[in-house]
Design a protein around this nucleic acid. Structure first.
Ligand code: FES
Ligand code: FES
Lengths: 146, 146
DNA sequence: TACTATTCCTATCGATTCGGTATGAATTAT
DNA sequence: ATAATTCATACCGAATCGATAGGAATAGTA
């Protein structure tokens, strides 16, 4: 499993939109500033997120983006798989891998399958309502740093 | 987590050497044929595995490689981390990542930490004695394919 | 209508990694 | 001497990553 910067930005974007769900429309500029991403790069990410059905957009002067569905129905797994591809750690899980003469018996493949399942168990359970609530909560508790 | 072909070859190499532990010395050529890897590429992998303390080598005419320790004491995690780097799925787990203004509170980071732990729990438990035994066992049971 | 702020589209680019080749030196058994 | 092996190093083409660049299309507003 790889999580690229693109995936990182995508997740933060969805999280940011989750925090504004049911209230504002949010511009790419706003998001870019808040999540500290290059705006032009973020635009490409937003374009993909739209194609993936995660966000809706409105063009023109007071345009922007909103979530396409309830944050509770979007999981980290959905987003990261769409942006960064499958979660399994090695090619042989997918098709076209001929490096193991008898893949059905390959003992390593079984390890990667286990890993994939363990990862999925986590990322498919974390949804953006929970994440947004965690963020709201953590903003109430000030940090008493020295 | 990423597992490259290099990592794939490394794991298969250790597995192959585990199957010959206490018996033969094995040449890179033999390994290359059995695991279907380009020999010159495999030599580089073997060189790294030697630096990592996983294998010992003997030069000259009847040279070759043997495992440096008992297969039971080598785990998939040790090998893959040494060859392909840390198992965590994103950069922010490591140092020098400044993209989250308050990383200590970042809710996504917590997800990645969980994922990293789940992956580690698996790959640090699988050792090469077990894998070798699985291979030996599966070779006894012929496949009744049509 | 003119202006402005926004999304949308597409091309390019430098750096790095990946998977592999190529060449040959050093070592050792026969 | 010869042959078989490990060891060392350099290179290379393709892909990916993380952007940057330039503008077209759209829509609200004065
Ligand atoms: S089938 Fe994946 S390593 Fe063998
Ligand atoms: S610290 Fe990793 S995504 Fe925030």
């Amino acid at each position: 499993m790889k999580v690229t910067y693109k995936g990182d930005y995508a997740l933060k974007t969805i999280l940011d939109l989750s925090l504004h769900y049911d209230s504002d429309i949010v511009t790419s500029n706003d998001i870019a500033k808040r999540i500290d991403a290059p705006i032009k790069f973020l635009e490409q990410v937003l374009s993909e997120l739209k194609k993936g059905g995660f966000v809706l957009s409105k063009r023109g002067k007071v345009g922007g983006y909103i979530l396409a569905k309830n944050p509770a129905k979007i999981t980290v797994g959905q987003v990261i798989r769409f942006i960064d591809g499958p979660v399994e750690p090695i090619a042989c899980i997918n098709k076209g891998y001929t490096n193991c003469s008898d893949a059905s018996k390959c003992v390593l493949k079984k390890v990667w399958e286990q890993v994939g399942m363990a990862v999925s168990a986590i990322i498919d359970k974390v949804n953006f309502e929970d994440l947004a609530n965690e963020v709201r909560k953590s903003k109430q508790e000030p940090v008493y740093s020295i």
